[in-house]
Design a protein around this nucleic acid. Structure first.
Lengths: 77, 77
DNA sequence: GCGTATTGTCCGGATATCAGGACAGCCTAA
DNA sequence: TTAGGCTGTCCTGATATCCGGACAATACGC
């Protein structure tokens, strides 16, 4: 259960990798996750591929300039 | 100096609050940060106000569904 | 008071993005 | 082999977004 090290997010690609990782942990398909979130499966696919770049890249640019690190981690309640 | 507790990001508003916090820590104005990042000051302002909602909201929806927590923290090298 | 810096907000036009549908490739099981 | 699930990718139209410029309000120091 302790594959629980946080993902450091530094690019759209690393964000995509992390999301895919956690989706697999949850045992969900893209279609199922799309259903639950009300999003399009096509969007989720491109998100995991790191193709939703502009918005994320902008945000990461800001954080990098401020010396701030973004991390994703399983929320163990 | 150890105001270094991570920000938990759960909404566009909390993201904005965190960014503004770290920008102030860096001693930068919106204009200066815009200059350094190549972004528009108007955009930074609305980002800090939590108005860049759709993209961020989508992403946070995915993470919430997967039980994943996003955090921002000063990168102490 | 005054002047200046900073920030929130509005507008308009150019652009990026998302949804929805579709198709093909890859596995895996029967 | 065939069938089905999963995923990556392309296309189109509708929409959200960003930039650039501008203005007003606020805060601060002098």
């Amino acid at each position: 259960m302790d594959d629980d090290r946080p993902f450091r997010i530094y690019s759209p690609e690393s964000l995509g990798v992390a999301i895919k990782h956690y989706r697999h942990l949850s045992g969900l398909s893209q279609a199922e996750l799309a259903e639950r979130t009300g999003l399009n499966r096509t969007y989720l696919s491109s998100l995991e591929q790191g193709r939703e770049t502009e918005q994320v890249r902008r945000l990461l640019r800001v954080l990098q300039e401020l010396g701030v690190r973004m991390t994703l981690q399983k929320a163990d309640w």
